[in-house]
């Protein structure tokens, strides 16, 4: 187990394409950090640089306080779980688990006990002698995890390990990964483009965009106080409503909004913080365009005069409203997030 220190890391590909623009990130011992962002944001590149599969153009990466820039992946004492699992197709599950240990000259008895333990932990004992192609997607995923676990490395690196699974299995495995990581307390870096996965797994969330870090923090912190418009739009589903300040002022009067920081021209509100009915905060009048019942909750698409884009609101259960109804919508004061369009950042 170890900390991972990333200092001033840049990645420039041949042809002067910059994938990573200088990243500083300290990952603590035993921490599970999730790198999340849209495709092309540099999250996988950063992970692969930690693994040693991509060269580092500038800056340093240290694992357990030792700079590893010029070390081969095998010399970094990390284990990786790949999106397509990358199981060796011609080897049995057992041989897949053993391969990394054998290459390191681990004694036979030690190999056997580690494989047995990992197999028990992941409940893959019945398949140990099978070939990967005889396994289901979920079972392969477990084997890929097992291959990382038996190594007892300083860090686990996960590269979108659940995106090849169907939704139900993904949910199960997410819980399982979380549980395993808590139990093993191995420093982990986890890459995903799925914000829900990121939120539920992370000790700390690193939101990336365009080769830069947008925000680092606990998932709830990031959710409750997104540092930029990008994070506000990326984390949370349905995404945050963004209302132009001018439009809001026209509705509720400019007097009440005057002590906002300068530069503020957009106000964000999470769909689940909006409420119907009168009370504290601003009240707008909206027409219900569409109601999407999602099961336990309902998504309302509302049209408000003066505001071009429809507002989305999440209500518990099945509200007694029909399409076309006119409702008062309340935005609680503590649910408002001020942003600046020019800088793309939060202003308070």
């Amino acid at each position: 187990m170890a900390s991972i220190d990333i200092k001033g890391v840049k990645k420039v590909y041949q042809g002067n394409v910059t994938a990573i623009h200088g990243i500083d990130l300290a990952i603590g011992d035993g921490e599970l950090v999730v790198l999340v962002g849209p495709s092309g944001c540099g999250k996988s590149t950063l992970l692969r640089m930690i693994a040693g599969l991509e060269t580092i153009t500038e800056g340093t990466i240290a694992i357990d306080s030792a700079v590893v820039n010029s070390r081969e992946p095998a010399e970094r004492d990390i284990a990786m779980v790949f999106q397509n699992y990358a199981l060796y197709p011609h080897m049995s599950v057992r041989q897949n688990l053993e391969y990394g240990l054998k290459n390191r000259g681990t004694p036979r008895a030690e190999i056997d006990s580690r494989v047995a333990e990992a197999a028990r932990m992941l409940e893959i004992e019945p398949f140990l002698e099978r070939k990967p192609r005889q396994l289901s997607g979920g079972q392969r995923q477990r084997v890929a995890m097992g291959r990382a676990i038996v190594r007892q490395p300083k860090a686990f690196l996960f590269d979108e390990p659940l995106s090849n699974l169907d939704a139900k299995l993904r949910g199960q495995m997410r819980v399982e990964i979380r549980r395993l990581q808590h139990r093993l307390k191995t420093t982990s870096v986890y890459v995903t483009h799925d914000q829900l996965e990121a939120m539920t797994l992370a000790d700390r969330l690193v939101v990336m965009n365009g080769g830069r870090i947008e925000q680092v923090g606990k998932p709830t912190e990031v959710y409750d106080r997104p540092a930029s418009l990008f994070v506000a739009g990326f984390i949370g589903s349905p995404p945050m409503n963004l209302i132009p300040l001018e439009a809001l002022k026209n509705i509720v009067g400019s007097a009440v909004l005057k002590d906002l920081p300068t530069e503020t021209d957009l106000i964000g509100v999470r769909p689940d913080r909006m409420q119907t009915g009168e009370g504290e905060g601003f009240v707008l009048t909206g027409t219900v365009d569409l109601i999407e019942p999602v099961g336990g909750e309902s998504h309302l698409y509302l049209h408000v005069e003066e505001i071009a884009a429809p507002l989305v609101m999440v209500m518990p259960g099945r509200p007694d409203l029909s399409e076309g109804a006119v409702v008062p919508i309340r935005l609680p004061l503590d649910a408002l997030h001020p942003f600046s369009t020019r800088t793309g950042l939060r202003t308070d």
Partner: peptide, 24 residues
């Protein structure tokens, strides 16, 4: 990823060739 996994697993080019590529 198969080659990358082998590298993480400590296989150099010749070992990768012998253990993975040749059997495949």
């Amino acid at each position: 990823e198969l080659m990358e996994a082998a590298r993480v697993d400590g296989a150099g080019p010749l070992k990768f060739f012998r253990d993975i590529l040749l059997p495949l």
